[in-house]
Design a protein around this nucleic acid. Structure first.
Lengths: 236, 236
DNA sequence: ATGCAATTCAAACGAGCGTTTGAATTCTCA
DNA sequence: TGAGAATTCAAACGCTCGTTTGAATTGCAT
């Protein structure tokens, strides 16, 4: 009658079993990247981690909870860092609101740092995250919402002050586009090899350096476009 | 000894069995949208289409080939229309190359028309497409590459002429960002409800009208940004 | 009407899935 | 060192999956 998931350890730190838990998380990070959540079986996962099949359910409860743990491990510190950077930015120049560039960079830098840090999962995790953003599974959507809600809300306020020409709704859409371009770019570095030869050292740092001016210009752009303009093209 | 997939019909048109095939395609479009490829079973699919379980393998060969058929049905005409629009644009003003706006609109309009046309799958299909873009499955990546290669190549040349300040490589990345923002936006209209209240009639047409100025500004932006600028934020 | 191909159908196949079980083992601290 | 908790383990459970089979049915051209 082994407890499916022990309520809490008596005294020892969580690090006691961290070896098995960490090996599972690392293997999951890699396999979820390669094959996605649904297509990754617990058998291949526990094989890759060199742990017993039952270990996932013992340590995490279920496959879904394992997936959430994979995301939380990296996402919590990253979003924390994002919020701290933004607060530092706002405390810095109390009079004028920080510029659009600075706010955007504060969002991108923690992702950049994570991508650089191989010990913290590096690029693999960002690809898992990008995929998760496009996944229809309700438990994933719910989880990401909870994880991102505060960070997004804070940044939205900051962007609103930096971009006074945009309505709240217009900005909501633009942030949506930003997150889309970001997650997509991070998710599919390999997919780029479809379009062109990116064989050289086009690492994630370089991606963000290319992404930043693109997004800044998009955010600063004037609002809306007339539908009639769109029709013009087909009419001539 | 029924043939798994008949080589070719004797005389009759393909439309003979179009009822069953179409019902399967329609149901697949909806279910792949809702749950994704892996999480949609052929049993719930054939139930929804009110056809026999074996009909999918009979008419399409396999689940994977069904998925490709779902994409092809809409993607082929859409990309064809994109190419035709671009050619019309280039023939129009032979002297000067068409502007960045016009080229981008030529890309967006066929997607917009598809989204409007409920008889051709409408929004559902665009969401399937957006998801497919983020899917790691090799057969999906390969298939999308083949479907998009020609269209992308042609548009890249057109954008290169419209944006002479961008190197070929820089433009490759920007088109990547454009496709990312586009597919992500189309894929997750519901995901937006996380960020804010988009309860009103924010249909796909309006999405593209908001997306267009964002992308145009991003494409026109000057190239690259200095790394030192990025570090500045965290240093102060 | 007849014959043949195209299609539909109910049933089953083998494999793999996530999860559970209960005993064996290891670890921890009194 | 010994009791008790935490962890590991091999095995199995029940279920669903995509696919295949071969007979039944339908549609069409002769």
């Amino acid at each position: 009658m082994a407890a499916p998931r022990p309520a809490r350890k008596s005294v020892a730190l969580d690090a006691t079993s961290a070896d098995t838990k960490t090996r599972i998380l690392d293997a999951a990070e890699g396999l979820f990247t390669e094959h996605g959540f649904e297509a990754t079986s617990l058998r291949q996962l526990t094989n890759a981690a060199a742990v017993n099949l039952a270990a996932v359910n013992y340590h995490f409860g279920s496959k879904e909870e394992l997936f959430q743990a994979v995301l939380t491990r990296r996402l919590d510190p990253m979003n924390q860092e994002r919020i701290e950077l933004l607060e530092a930015l706002e405390g810095e120049a109390a009079a004028k609101p920080p510029s659009c560039e600075k706010v955007l960079f504060a969002m991108l830098i923690p992702a950049l740092r994570l991508a650089r840090d191989e010990k913290r999962g590096g690029k693999n995790f960002l690809r898992v995250l990008g995929r998760a953003y496009a996944d229809p599974a309700p438990f994933i959507r719910r989880f990401l919402h909870e994880q991102y809600a505060e960070m997004i809300a804070r940044y939205k306020e900051a962007f609103l002050r930096a971009l006074p020409h945009l309505s709240r709704q217009e900005l909501t859409w633009r942030l949506h586009f930003v997150m889309g371009a970001l997650s997509y770019s991070l998710a599919s570095t390999d997919a780029l090899k479809q379009f062109a030869q990116v064989t050289q050292a086009d690492n994630d740092e370089l991606i963000l350096q290319r992404l930043a001016p693109f997004l800044v210009a998009g955010l600063k752009a004037p609002a809306l476009v007339d539908t009639r303009k769109l029709e013009l093209v087909s009419g001539s």
